[in-house]
Structures are given as structure tokens and as C-alpha cells.
Design a protein around this nucleic acid. Structure first.
Lengths: 233, 233
DNA sequence: AAGTGGTCTAGACCACGAC
DNA sequence: TCGTGGTCTAGACCACTTA
């Protein structure tokens, strides 16, 4: 049951990892098949399969039926980011969260929004903008467009009581989405809201979500200067 | 073998997903155990286990022995980022990659580097800075410190021929690391290198890697303005 | 045609941890 | 204590893809 027992999947995995790291199996080389490895390690093929499957998921091995398994030549490191509810992110920093609703209007969005969502350019969407605070300091600006047709009752929600961020997570499951991270200089409006100098470097998250091809929402989060998004490999 | 056959693990998983999304199983509620679900779906417990394990890995379910499995209350969406070799990232954009080595010196790093790595503040490290280009336009600035003691022969490597980014991936396996993403305004030196206006918003990736408690490298990647890091959920 | 990984089964034992 | 998930087994059939 430890990492060095080669009859547990973790043990097999760490032995495989060792061979890859120490170049016993060089990058690009063909490694033995599951049946042979199972025999070598004295375990069932299922056990070897689990160990290898996870290494393939992590990008360290490349597996193809009939062709066999090879050590990946350019193991792109894979980073997992957890993106929590904004309120929880603030509270995890031991700060008090509050938000202030800036705008909530039903209107026709700019074409850059409808075109990316694949919606009729004349369709009305709900535009909600709000400012999130951490201990009364501006934390981020949330600029969101919501698909009214896909979110029944959304027009009657009081987004000054519940953030649209949180309401959507609880009420609108999504199946797929795109996320982009970038940096931009604060324009006058954003600088004013975030109490930052004009032109300050702002960390920006753009996110679009769909529920089985139905567009749900498009949002831009603009963080106050100094924000860092951290994670471990 | 399709997503709707409840005797394949994908089929079971999509049915479980449906029940979670449609609140048939509300957030926080206890869901049936593996044996009961296997009976309901007419499949082996192993199959149910695989489906549920992956949902737990994705953060949608919380599993505990004896206590059973519950629907997660705050499903933080989990984003996976692939961070490739810089050369490949440029080439994937159908651009020609090249780099120019700016500096390669062995010297004592600033305290902010040694302290974060947990190294002796007087230890020499190898400082390598280089500029990566895409089609002869500056793409990013790589500012790296390498632990000489942990990387035998690193002082003799010609980093004008191989980028330190690529050399490390091929020669220095790591076990853990920290990554941080942020935005900063370009100072005069960086603006000059990246051919950007002074103060331009720069997307920054800071990364530190260890190999079993031995610090390997600390690097800051500063991308030219306009860079976006994209991924799917 | 044949080798390889992908998956399912039925059963088993065990570790954890709530009670 | 004992229910639950975690894991392993031995065997089987199948899907994919290369030779």
C-alpha cells in the first residue's frame, strides 16, 4: 500500500515515473505493454492500466492502441486552477466581502459579445455590472452579460442581494466554457471604480459559458492592481 | 458504449451529472452508495466507482468512507492550463521562433529569490535572461535563476542555442512547483526590450520549481502586451 | 491480420472514520 | 462496530490502428 509496493497502482506509478525521470526510458521511446509490465511487477493488468492512464492524463505518456505507449517528448506541464466564488475568495483572505450593484439593464449587447456567443445580434441580454469589495477596498469589477432566454426569471433577481456570480453558479449549470487571462491598462472608468491610477496594470479574466450549445453568460472580471492568481503544480 | 448507456462508465457519469445539474440531487445531499447505484444501473460497482471518482476529482462530489458521497455545495470550477515550451507556443501560432540571450552570469541573487527558494542567501546562482521572438517581434522576456548545485554542468550550457526553458524541461525533472499569474506595468527596461510603451500592461507568470525539496529554478515570464492565455473548462 | 490499449465483470479484502 | 469507498484480481470482449 505504500508508494514503493509495485503491486499497488501508486507503487507502479511511482516506479514508472522514476524510469521516465531518470531517463531509463528516454523521451520518445516505446515502453513495454501492459501485460508485460503487469508480469514484471507481479500485479494485475488493471493495476498497470490505472497507473499508466493517469500518467497519460498528466501528459507524461502518449498511448495509442496497437502502436503502444511512448514517453512524451515535450511534457507540457499541466496546471490546475480552482476558480471559486468571488465572495469565498475574498473571505479566504480573511477579508469582509460586500458588493455594490452598478448597473442592471436589459439591452442589446455590443456585437463582440453576441458574435462570440453565437447569438442573434438583435437579441436583448441582461447587462449586470457590480463592484466587489474586500474590507471596503475595491477588489474586482464584474461586467456580465446574461442570456435572458436561457435563464428564466433572471430579470426579477435582486442582484444587489446576491452577486450574479454566485446566483449563476447555484442556478445555471454549464457544460463547457472558454477562459482567457490577460493584462490591460485601466481606462478612466475602471481606474475610478477600482480606485487605481489611470493606466494601472489590471489582471483580467474573460469567461464564456455554455450549457450544451446554449450560451449562458459572458463575463469580464477586472481585478484591482496587485492581484495575483496562485496555484501549485 | 455511448454516453447514454448506463452500463459504461461514461454513461453512468453523464447520468450522475444530469441528476446533479438538474438538482434531482440537490447540493449538499447524500447520494446513494456505489452498490445501490450499480444495481440500479445494472453494472458492476467498479464502473460506478470510476464514474464517481472522476466527478470527485473534478470537485463535483465529495466522498468520504463510511460517511458516503455528497454533492459538493460550492463547486469551484476547475480550469486546466497546459503550459508548453515557449518555442512550441510560438510555433503553434504559426510564427517563427527565435531567442536572443541577454545575460548569463553566476552571481548572488537578490534576497527575494533566495528566501522564496529556501537557499543560503550567499549562494551563487546562475542568472539567465533572454528574449523570445515570434516572427521577429518580441514575444516574452524570460528572467531565470537556476540552482547551480542542483544542476550539474549548467554553467557550461550554451543558452543561446537552447533556451533555458527548454533545457530545463529536458534535463531537470521537478516534482512540485508554485505558479502565480499577475499583471504589472512595464518599467523602462522591460518596455525597451518588449518594444512596448512605458507602463504598458504586462501579463506575468512567476514560477518556482523544486525536485523533492531541492530548489531548481525561479523564473519570471513577462509577455508582450496583448498576450492572452486561453483554455477551456 | 494481429497487437495494443479501453473497458467491463464478479468477487474479494481492506482502510477509514462516523456512530 | 460496521458501513462506505479504495483498491486489487483474473478473466473477458472489444475498438482502434498499424503492419
Amino acid at each position: 500500500m505504500t508508494d514503493t509496493d509495485t503491486n499497488s497502482w501508486r507503487g507502479v506509478q511511482s516506479e514508472l515515473l522514476r524510469r521516465i525521470n531518470e531517463k531509463e526510458w528516454p523521451a520518445g521511446s516505446l515502453v513495454p505493454n501492459e501485460v508485460d509490465l503487469a508480469e514484471e511487477f507481479g500485479c494485475a493488468r488493471t493495476t498497470v492500466n490505472r497507473a499508466m492512464r493517469e500518467l497519460a492524463d498528466a501528459g507524461l505518456l502518449v498511448r495509442r492502441r496497437k502502436a503502444g505507449t511512448r514517453v512524451a517528448t515535450h511534457p507540457a506541464s499541466r496546471v490546475v486552477l480552482d476558480i471559486p466564488i468571488i465572495r469565498l475568495e475574498v473571505e479566504q483572505r480573511n477579508a469582509e466581502w460586500r458588493q455594490s450593484l452598478i448597473e442592471k439593464t436589459a439591452c442589446v449587447p455590443p456585437v463582440r459579445i453576441t458574435s462570440r456567443l453565437g447569438l442573434d445580434p438583435d437579441a436583448q441580454m441582461l447587462h449586470v455590472r457590480s463592484l466587489h469589495f474586500a474590507d471596503n477596498h475595491p477588489f474586482l469589477h464584474e461586467d456580465r452579460w446574461m442570456n435572458i432566454a436561457a435563464l428564466p426569471g433572471v430579470e426579477r433577481v435582486d442582484f444587489s442581494a446576491v452577486s450574479s456570480n454566485e446566483w449563476l453558479i447555484e442556478n445555471a449549470p454549464y457544460t463547457t466554457g472558454d477562459i482567457a487571462f490577460s493584462a490591460m491598462n485601466a481606462d478612466a472608468a475602471l481606474a475610478d471604480l477600482l480606485e487605481a491610477p489611470l493606466g494601472a496594470a489590471i489582471f483580467v479574466v474573460d469567461r464564456i459559458t455554455w450549457d450544451k450549445d446554449i450560451p449562458i453568460t459572458s463575463v469580464r472580471l477586472s481585478y484591482a492592481p496587485g492581484y495575483r492568481m496562485n496555484t501549485k503544480i
